Computed example of a mutant assay.
Amino acid sequence: MGLGKSLLRAAAIVEVAAERVFFQGDLERLTIEPYDGYATPDHLIARGRVLAAREVEKIDGRSKLANARQMMRLFATHEVADVTVTSGASSAVTDAEGYFTLFLPRTDQVGWVNVAVSISGHAAICPVLVARPDADVVVISDIDDTMIHTGAWSTPRNLWTSFTGNVESREVFADAVTLIRALSQQDRNPVYFVSSSPWNFHGFLTTVFARAGLPNAPKFLRDYGFGTDQFITGRHGDHKGSAIDRILAAHPALPAVLIGDTGQHDAQIYADAAVRHPGRIARVILRAPGRGADTDDLLQVERLRSLAIPVFVGPDFRPVLRELTPHRV
């Protein structure tokens, strides 16, 4: 679902056009779109977006043209800035794109904690994941061509796959599902997904992952910032690297397993993260889609290994699964 650099300008045009053509809603009635949050040692972090209420069509298994139309409707949102969102004594104000982040005091609860948030005339529940005290690692995975087949290494293939599929047709790799479930150890270890897909795809991805049997997990998607003052919030690698930094800071006692692919320079992003966080990266697992790992990827793999980090690179995850689940693979 990620968008390559050559698509960023087109994506801005898509969002503006989608709102003008497909938005059907009430600009006077506001709603909260909750995102899955996470916890730090000090806070529960609830996240979401305030939008004008709209009608949403179900994305079903019809023609590719109908799928494309309905995927376009995911961008047909009217964001609302400067709205105060509250939860108990905590509050936050939405930014220019309608996003908010609430910091609440930690409690003794673990697992998924439901945080009630509200604005004038509307309330919602923002789920927050609190890691269990017996967790051994934190699992951080890319999405595009790691979990879901998109062809992100090829711009035309990525665009076609992203905008003509639906929740039933999107291909989640079976080996990726097995890998995430094995590493999560029945939800003992927290899982996070990081992608350059826009936040507009949050609900879509959540549905696709649930259908595939993946554990629910917070996602760090990308704010493309299609406003008059900004275009995007940083580069692809900057976004992923920043997300990894925040996740590691939220779990200071846990090493991380990083999962990705060689199609979008994940090896370099992960090697840079390993340098910034010495001793925190337990292992790196990389799928090599399409044409496979190129020279730059292999150089970054060797850079990781020079830091004494075990790295797997291959067309699928079966060798890793044989190690983790020898009785099943």
Rank of each mutant, 00 (worst) to 15 (best):
V191K: 04
F317P: 08
L3D: 08
T207K: 10
L3N: 11
W199G: 10
D296H: 13
E171Y: 02
R211K: 12
I119Y: 01
E97N: 15
A18D: 00
V113D: 05
R291L: 13
S63P: 09
P215L: 00
S242C: 11
L307Q: 14
A124W: 04
D42A: 13
P255K: 08
E79F: 03
L179P: 06
S154A: 05
A46M: 02
A308G: 10
E302L: 09
V167A: 15
A116Q: 13
G61M: 02
A53C: 09
A249S: 10
S141L: 04
E97R: 14
A68V: 06
P255T: 05
T84L: 11
D296S: 14
G121S: 00
G165S: 15
R132H: 12
L307V: 05
P41R: 00
Y192P: 08
D142W: 02
I125P: 09
S197V: 01
D144Q: 04
R291E: 14
P190W: 00
D60N: 14
V311L: 07
P105T: 05
V110Q: 12
F201S: 08
V311K: 08
I180V: 11
R47Y: 04
G25M: 03
D36M: 09
W199I: 08
A210H: 13
P198L: 08
E55M: 12
V130W: 02
H149G: 14
Q109Y: 00
V80A: 05
R69L: 14
N216G: 15
R73A: 15
L299C: 12
P215N: 04
A243R: 05
Q70K: 15
R287M: 04
R305V: 06
Q300G: 07
H277T: 07
R181E: 12
H277E: 06
I119L: 04
G279K: 06
G61V: 00
E302V: 07
H78E: 15
D144H: 01
Q24T: 12
S195V: 03
Y270M: 05
R222F: 02
V167E: 14
V128C: 06
G88I: 05
R20N: 11
V177L: 01
A66S: 14
H327G: 12
A212G: 03
V80C: 05
S63K: 10
L205N: 09
H251F: 02
R181P: 09
N166V: 05
Q230K: 13
R157K: 10
T178F: 00
Y224I: 01
A288H: 06
G260A: 00
C126R: 03
V138A: 02
D82F: 03
Q109T: 07
T233E: 11
F317T: 04
T206M: 12
W112K: 09
D297N: 13
H327M: 10
F193V: 09
T31Y: 01
V56T: 15
